[in-house]
């Protein structure tokens, strides 16, 4: 029959229309909107009816691996001093596909040896492609991809080259947004430190006659 195909299609639209009301009735008394479980439901395989996430009142949570613009991680010691994890080794700048990272290094005025922490660190976010290579290949876990995507601005010329101050965030922030990765890295680091300490201890025991200052330096955990 001519027109049956059209009717069939309209039936599909009608079920979608009805579903949105059925869903709302099913969720009576529970929060389908503006609640964690509501969002979870709307992004699950069973989602039906209204699919909208009402940004900005509710936000679709980003997964742990989500990457936006990179940030630099610093550790805070007991006295409250900040220590950049970055050693300005330059791997991130070398691997960056669009070359949007600039690292300013410096050397100690007295010893003339390079200072590990960078003097400044720039990322041009108008070039950055959010690929995540810098975070992936950084051997010191010093640069990570941020979750903050709300960065719209009125002026790019003054604001869009991020310097070290703007890029730096504490390790606790990193642990907050990427708990699994953070814990894995910390465990690895602890294991490595333990291994090093053990090796150093063995070395110290073997060379008991020699002074032990070399072993002491070896047992400091890698920063």
């Amino acid at each position: 029959m001519y027109g049956l195909g059209i009717l069939k299609g309209m039936w599909v639209t009608l079920t979608h229309f009805i579903d949105s009301y059925v869903e709302d009735i099913k969720w009576l008394g529970r929060n389908r909107y503006y609640s964690k479980e509501g969002i979870q439901h709307r992004r699950s395989k069973d989602t039906k009816g209204i699919f909208t996430v009402q940004y900005p009142e509710e936000k679709l949570p980003v997964p742990e691996e989500f990457r936006f613009v990179p940030f630099l991680v610093y550790d805070v010691d007991e006295e409250g001093n900040k220590h950049d994890r970055c050693t300005s080794c330059g791997i991130c700048a070398k691997v960056c596909p669009p070359q949007c990272i600039w690292i300013v290094r410096t050397e100690d005025p007295v010893t003339k040896r390079p200072v590990p922490e960078p003097v400044d660190f720039f990322i041009d976010v108008d070039i950055c492609m959010n690929c995540g290579y810098c975070a992936e290949y950084c051997p010191f876990d010093a640069i990570k991809m941020d979750h903050d995507y709300e960065m719209a601005s009125f002026d790019r010329h003054a604001e869009h080259i991020f310097n070290k101050e703007k890029l730096s965030k504490p390790a606790s922030y990193y642990a907050g947004i990427r708990p699994t990765n953070y814990n894995r890295e910390e465990t690895l680091k602890a294991e490595e430190a333990a291994k090093k300490a053990a090796a150093a201890a063995a070395k110290a025991a073997a060379a008991a006659a020699k002074p032990a200052d070399g072993a002491a330096a070896g047992s400091t955990p890698a920063q």
Binding site: S88, G90, A93, K94, V95, C96, P97, Q99, I101, W102, I103, V104, R105, P118, D120, F122, D124, I161
Partner: peptide, 13 residues
């Protein structure tokens, strides 16, 4: 070719 030298170690943005 990349990487460009002035990104690192010079770093003059």
């Amino acid at each position: 070719v990349k990487p460009f030298k002035n990104r690192w170690p010079e770093g003059q943005v």
